[in-house]
Design a binder for these strands. Sequence first.
DNA 1: GCCCATCGTCCAGCATACTGAACGGATGGC
DNA 2: GCCATCCGTTCAGTATGCTGGACGATGGGC
Lengths: 279, 279
Amino acid sequence: MTDAARAIDETAAESESLAPAVTRAGAILDLLAENAGKAAGPSELARRLGLPKSSIANICNALADMGLVRRVGTGFALGRKLAELGGAYLASVDLVQEFYEAAQLLPVGSEETIQLAVLDGLEMTYLARHDGRQPVRLTSQIGRRLPATVTATGKAALSSLPDADLDDRLAGASPLPTLTPNSIGTIEALRADLVAVRERGYSMDDEETVEGVVCYGVMIPGRRPGEGPYAASITLLKARATEERIPLLIDDLHRLAEQLSDPLRAGRVPRHAGVVQNP
Amino acid sequence: MTDAARAIDETAAESESLAPAVTRAGAILDLLAENAGKAAGPSELARRLGLPKSSIANICNALADMGLVRRVGTGFALGRKLAELGGAYLASVDLVQEFYEAAQLLPVGSEETIQLAVLDGLEMTYLARHDGRQPVRLTSQIGRRLPATVTATGKAALSSLPDADLDDRLAGASPLPTLTPNSIGTIEALRADLVAVRERGYSMDDEETVEGVVCYGVMIPGRRPGEGPYAASITLLKARATEERIPLLIDDLHRLAEQLSDPLRAGRVPRHAGVVQNP
DNA sequence: GCCCATCGTCCAGCATACTGAACGGATGGC
DNA sequence: GCCATCCGTTCAGTATGCTGGACGATGGGC
């Protein structure tokens, strides 16, 4: 999204907000997060958000007093308290805690990189990551967002949506964002792939996110109404994705999904291979 | 801190803020983070913060529109975007990235739980964690804060402060918070321990944070002026802390500190044991 | 089953947070 | 070395966001 488009969006959102200063503070944090690492001064923020310079300065000072942003030189960057709040959020999501425990117990998958993400619009937000013994440092950091249409987690989550919901999300989304030459770029191709995901019982990302890396994903239903579907994935270098290993990893993913869907029952009566995703 | 005391603090802070809505929004997020997992309605938040109910509702709605809080039932809880922003903050701290790379290369320590934290007042905020193969799930989650006076990271960081700075932080801090019967509880005992840390070159937490768990810590200097001192620690069950193993872990900690203090030089000319912390 | 307490939401008036312009300082180009 | 430019900060006036009270809905307690 361009800065101009964002400015319009923010203005529109602000006109409806009953606490504009808070909405603006959020826009500032978003902007700082995009250019993370680089500090931005009040003038630059004001220009890019299309807001008065003084107001930005006042809000930034308030944010700095609370530690949500930190002063670096004369500008502002994201602050330490965001790590605290982000950690508190992740700790409040039961799925995240259970994911960490369940992932390291998987017989085969625990050696690989396993991730948990949640669908939000047409993007996946990554909430947790189990690091296997394989050094795949290419994986997403926690909190990062990636297009749902090119990731294994995203396609697993999208495949579980009712048709009407999927149509709403895809409306006006063309062309789809692509990260590699293999990325699915059209809605038609995506729909065909989602059908395959439902039949197969798991999703695939064959070098659609990063070249040389493949992922397999399964859907995990949300536990509260309104909670978007979650998904878990296993990431590995394509060279390691042998025909012997893949079925074992898929089995582990299904086991993980079952445990996270209903931890009590799955914990007492563990099942094994052949579990289907949508009975 | 009691709710009443917090309310007074917030009021005082707010009286000086030029963007009170933002300061209040931060107070709301803090409160939700303390009772993470539990949703709170506008009335409860208003009561505990000593602020008008309507204002709280307006701010919460603005926060919810941005995803910083989520509506659960009719109340509010921490939102998904906090994970996004927290991850972006952590990604912007170079030390965090280098810590992950350096920790997994330590010859002995990489098998244990290693953590990176930063001093903030008299508390340590945990920024990164390397999970070894030992299942010590007792360790702090990222973003969590613990008293500096009872943790290995905290005592390592405090030991590096100039006397005047330390005095300022300790002013009015008595009695010190304690987590176990072993926790240091008095400022005198703390000062004595910090002297020992400086002589030894590393800090110890012998069941002061969690019973049955010991930690060793070293200080890592900040890179920018005003950045509080950082510290790294190795955590392990007391049963594993044998007299043979401890020196190896201390060596690894010193190596880690050296690499993170000056990554370029340390990377080219790696040294080994016997490195002192404050040359 | 009734009632009361408590909740979340809505609305109009007032105090106040936001705005726009002016100021002093720092920076880079000529 | 000078000037022009941009920055961050300050300040007073005014539009506007905040407040307190009232409303309807909800859910325990007796």
